[in-house]
């Protein structure tokens, strides 16, 4: 059965494009545009991996992450952050939170796919 990936970004174009890319690689994809939707969709579809934007309305990525990690049902879902605000500070924060990956926009989709495959196969 195809693995499910949830793409969360407040920019619908990103969600659309990433989904297209992932589907081309054989994943099932789901989308969300803010933190609240992210939690909702996660609850519904139980994705195998989440691509999470950090800066979003209605609960940013960090808040969504903390929520996901604090629930026993979702705490083991691998989460990769994708942000337009890279930098050592953010990187450090992400690392401390215990995220599984970190990508800066504009991302290289080949590298991103590689990382996703690695995390899902574990």
């Amino acid at each position: 059965m195809a693995k499910k990936i949830l793409v969360v970004d407040d920019e619908p174009q990103i969600v659309r494009l990433l989904s297209q890319r992932l589907r081309a690689s054989g994943f099932d994809t789901y989308g969300a545009n803010d933190g609240y939707q992210c939690l909702k969709v996660t609850k519904e579809v139980k994705p195998d991996l989440i691509l999470l934007d950090i800066k979003m309305p209605a609960g940013g990525g960090i808040q969504a992450f903390n929520n996901l990690r604090s629930s026993i049902y979702t705490q083991n879902i691998p989460i990769i952050f994708i942000t337009a605000y890279p930098g050592p500070e953010v990187e450090k924060q992400v690392k401390e939170l215990g995220a599984d990956g970190f990508f800066a926009k504009p991302f290289n989709s080949a590298e991103l796919l590689e990382k996703i495959e690695a995390l899902i196969s574990e």
Partner: peptide, 19 residues
């Protein structure tokens, strides 16, 4: 920072077409 998201969209769109 603001440029990064549109740039990501452009890059990914072009890459998908080329791929």
């Amino acid at each position: 920072h603001e440029l990064r998201t549109p740039l990501a969209i452009i890059q990914e769109s072009v890459a998908q077409v080329l791929d």
